[in-house]
Amino acid sequence: MSDGLSSLKEEDVQRLTRLIESLDASTFDYLQLRVGDLEVTIGKRAPALTGPATPTYVVPPSPLGKTSVGAAPTTPAASSAPSSAASGPPPSLQTAPTPPARATPSGSGAASTAAAGTIEIKSQIMGMFYSQPEPGSPPFVSIGAEVKEDTTVCLIEVMKTFNAMTAGVKGVITEICVKNAQLVEYGQVLFRIRPS
């Protein structure tokens, strides 16, 4: 192993850095690379075990295609336009998929630790996500903001009832995972915080 590491040239390290950066920007959990004797695994979380643990129901694609507007069958998608305008066709269900937060079950609170040293802040209820106290005002938090356990980070609205959500941990916001006025599901990751 030490032989392998010492044989890394400056060029190799730079290549690895690029790989890490592109992985970071991607939606993939990990990357595994094997070149000759050298094997590199870079990951945000642990590589999945080989083979599904329990088979889940998967709808195979029809050769005729779907008759109605179909979202990707395996991941519930988040609506990009939660418009309630009565006229015109309803917004398409085919929008950017939000990975359901099933990989890391939350414990007592909404926070759970991700491999990269950040903590995921998940929504504890389903509802409309608001990043600011009212339209036009500055957001509760932005990337880089320092928060304490009791800092309000967003509002979740359910039928005109607004529920303030607190960070639950002390740290710095590294990512805001949802957009203002978007429907968030129960358990969906809203923020990532690097604890301090």
Partner: peptide
Amino acid sequence: HLADRAVC
């Protein structure tokens, strides 16, 4: 999986 979309 059968529905066009699921919301938790």
